[in-house]
Design a protein around this nucleic acid. Sequence first.
DNA 1: GTAGTATGCTAAG
DNA 2: TTAGCCTACTACT
Length: 276
Amino acid sequence: MPEGHTIHRLARRHKRLFGGAPVRAASPQGRFEAGAAALDGLVLRGTDAHGKHLFHDYGDRWLHVHLGLYGTFVDGDGEPPATRGQIRLLLTGGRLRSGALAPAWAELRGPTACEVLDDAGRDVLLARLGPDPLRRDADPAVAWQRISRSRTSIGALLMRQDVVSGVGNVYRAEALFRAGIDPYRPGRDVTPEEWKAVWDDLVVMMADGVRLGRIVTLRPEDKRRAVDPADGPRRDRGAGRYVYHRAGRPCRICGTPVLTAVVEGRNLFWCPRCQE
DNA sequence: GTAGTATGCTAAG
DNA sequence: TTAGCCTACTACT
């Protein structure tokens, strides 16, 4: 479920599991053999996340991972399980706890990117990313510069990682709903006040996502207002959200059926009455 | 069990 | 613009 919150969560977790001690790296699948060899035996100094990009700091080189749509990390304590399926990267190691090593492992499958970068390579990558609502150093004015001058729709702009990084299809739909903005509205017709509200809301929602490990955007008072079967015991992907994956179901605020359309290859969801 | 779908991006054309 | 990644989850049989 990789939007930005997932990556920040992984960064924290990997630091906790492997930080400060040497790692063993291997590529059972074989597609990352040279990279794994370049990391094997190095000490993990720290981890970092920028948007949907994860970095491990190994001193003079970085591991860079982008999960894409399918990529997934699974980890655990102790010894790794028997190899099953296509494992691009298997990390084993542990964190030094009061002098003893607590063993741990992590396996990576199906990523879009898994590579070793030097500082220059990492800088090139970071240079093309817009501000990340989950980072303290993020400056929403940088994104506003792009949005306020663009004829492109705000729905498309929010998905572009060089405008805002870390926002994906779920946060896009939910943030625009909560701000009452039609996703088709051109960026330059969004007011500064609306942009500030969207940014501040993304900061809150995505921090919630990091804490909870999933995307929940439905406010408690609105959950009581309109009951949706999806919120019951048999939860579906529309549970806990206003519009994402709720096509055809009544808007939780006004009851109008939620609309969906494929925009640039991705499913967009919105309420035509609440968002204008 | 099996089919269908997807929270994203890159490389090829 | 399109195919590829080749996983996890859901809904259905």
